[in-house]
Amino acid sequence: MKVLVCISKTPDTTAKIAFTEGNTKFDENGVQWIINPYDEWYSLVRAIELKEKDPTVTIHLVTVSGADAEPIIRKALALGGDEAIRVNNTSNDSMVVAQEIAAVAKEGAYDLILTGKETIDYNSASIGSMLSALLDQNYIAPATKLEIDGTKALVTREIDGGEETAETNLPVIVSCQKGMAEQRIPNMRGIMAARTKPLKVVEASIQTATTSIQQFDLPPAKSGVKLIDPTQMDELVRLLKEEAKVI
């Protein structure tokens, strides 16, 4: 079985969010880059677990990014990917990214494509759904469990107020979230092996973006917390009713 895991480079969850060039660009100064947590903890680690059960599984990684994504790709290889493909396109338009990944996916004829639920920078949650349209494959999102049984996938996904489990034939595209797997740390053997694993660079083929970022803004600062004495809960209720008007 061939698995394609989509990897995105994102700022660390604790990174300071600031903007430059008249608030049109994310300020990368001093930012530590990580593999998008949903891509790493859930999709990649689940793919590795599937490979541990069935050694015939091969795991390819794909990222659509500039050369500065190579350290995080090497980390993903160290965790357990077999090969990586970097499409050299720095667009942050989801439609462009999805089309680049779809081209890689068509070429590789994968049985299973895994994405994270969303990236923690642009929070678009779009790539898996777009791939399903571009490849005309089933899409199940957001998944908390995934089992493979021969040519079938059993996927549990979150629905409002619960979960449902679905069965479908491969190929399928699954977006992964919490529950799927537990975070791992690469070991020394993995890190050494990752240095010589293939990392292929493919030139960008899609240029036409459907959206463009005009401006970033930080949310207005909270006017400051209003402290209420612990013995004055009637006052808190009054404020929630009359000032905040939420109850």
């Binding site: 973006a209 959206t211 005009q214 970033f216």
Partner: peptide
């Protein structure tokens, strides 16, 4: 943060 995106 917020981002303002133009749909083209």
């Amino acid at each position: 943060a917020f981002a303002s995106l133009k749909i083209e």
